[in-house]
Design a binder for these strands. Structure first.
Lengths: 246, 246
DNA sequence: CGTTCTTTTGACCGGCGTCAATATAGGTGG
DNA sequence: CCACCTATATTGACGCCGGTCAAAAGAACG
């Protein structure tokens, strides 16, 4: 089962006391459904909320001066969205639903108050931000140093892994639900070249495609084609000192 | 004057009470000098400390499977280094001194205890991490979408801006102290091509070079060549609710 | 004052973007 | 349920940006 609520996500990182968990659950009681293609937050828009993605799939991107779009991350259930409102007065990226989705809004002031009452939450947030930074560093390295084919293979594996976390049945056959243009905007390629690379991977018998459905035929080979992007260790806050006052 | 201590850096983001400031100052009392080229932390090394850079210039990089190096960030006085030990048991990047430098180590357990006693610190840390993520997103976008010339122009401007923060006299003439290979490793180019782009910028009368010294001849032109990398807003935590218990 | 690192320049070429044409799918109104 | 219409996918031709290889000239350092 995927982590769906905010409390679950923080709890992945840090064992929460019952009191902490209750405080967090209180923050994200509401739910808000989004249609495919709907914009949740617009870049540079002033906002005082962040969100948890409860179901569906979304993306965060920035628009560059030349009008092109850089997709920074794909978002899956359990992910925190729009955390930039913690540090900035306005959103730093646009958040759009790729499929029909449900998010739970969290008011940043309520969140801050919870963190002031339960100080471990602030550190857990810092750790989650750190993990996000590290993931972004991996993507940056991949874009800067690896070939188009490796990047396409890599993004396929990532999507599969992250979709699969919700449904173990999606072992090696899945429907990304992304256009080739979106894939390209995420990894710094044109849609035309993404298409060529997908054909190559197909010709190499690493994947098969049928309609929108992808099947991984040779996971080891695909992973090798991706250039061995070893997954980093998970967040670990077990070293945190205990301090009563709960 | 640049922010040099950890308390100063956090204080940039959040007005600190005297008690908070004292608690932070206590964390980074020691100093540790580093020779040019010295490695402070090695990737994948287990560590329980983070650092503030008090003087000098450093860089953080990762080594990729093909043996190449991706420089993730250049570090200047006031910056926090090695914050990944907060979320991970081991360092996620290698930290090396580019010039002779001085760092102040901060024990992560002591830092965590301080944050548990002064909860606003945890949120400030989260905000600083968020800012780092945003900066990395900018670099990723630049590497993915802009030309080699724009990236070189951009990194020159960034280095100048960040060096200049320490010494206002360094308005438009400065010595980066980076090899062209290091510049290339930061922006995803070979040193050969960095050299070609520097020559182009010189031929365009945007910059001049003399030994290791760079002079910006036409800042507007250089900024245009860099592709209008608009600086994002600074971190702002003024919305944080007050909550006694200090 | 040699040795090694860095810079500089030229020749060459391949990966990926651009442009364009066609096929296919999805979605909408009638 | 069909006709139309737009978004997406696919493929080919062509060209350029930036990598690779190589050689030589500085520059730094013991």
């Amino acid at each position: 089962m995927p982590a769906l609520s905010f409390a679950d996500r923080v709890g992945d990182v840090l064992p929460l006391s019952a009191i902490e968990r209750t405080a967090l659950a209180y923050l994200s009681e509401r739910e808000r459904p989004l249609r495919r293609g709907a914009t949740l937050v617009r870049q540079n828009e002033r906002s005082g909320e962040l969100f948890t993605l409860k179901s569906g799939m979304m993306m965060g991107y920035v628009l560059l001066d030349d009008g092109s779009r850089q997709i920074l991350r794909f978002l899956f259930p359990g992910d925190l969205l729009g955390t930039d409102v913690l540090a900035y007065g306005q959103a730093q990226q646009t958040l759009v639903a790729i499929t029909d989705s449900v998010v739970a809004p969290i008011d940043r002031i309520l969140l801050a108050e919870a963190a002031l009452r339960h100080p471990r939450l602030g550190l857990a947030l810092a750790a989650l931000e750190q993990a996000e930074s590290t993931a972004m560093a991996d993507r940056l390295s991949a874009i800067a140093k690896t070939s188009a084919r490796a990047r396409v293979a890599s993004v396929l594996l990532e999507i599969r892994d992250r979709m699969g976390r919700g449904d173990a049945a999606i072992a090696d056959s899945f429907i990304p639900g992304l256009t080739q243009e979106e894939i390209g905007d995420a990894i710094g390629l044109t849609s035309v070249h993404v298409n060529r690379m997908l054909r190559q991977l197909e010709d190499m018998r690493l994947i098969a495609r049928n309609g929108g459905r992808f099947t991984i035929l040779d996971e080891v080979g695909l992973r090798r084609a991706a250039g061995h992007v070893d997954r980093r260790a998970g967040v670990d806050l077990s070293w945190l000192p205990e301090l009563q006052r709960e």
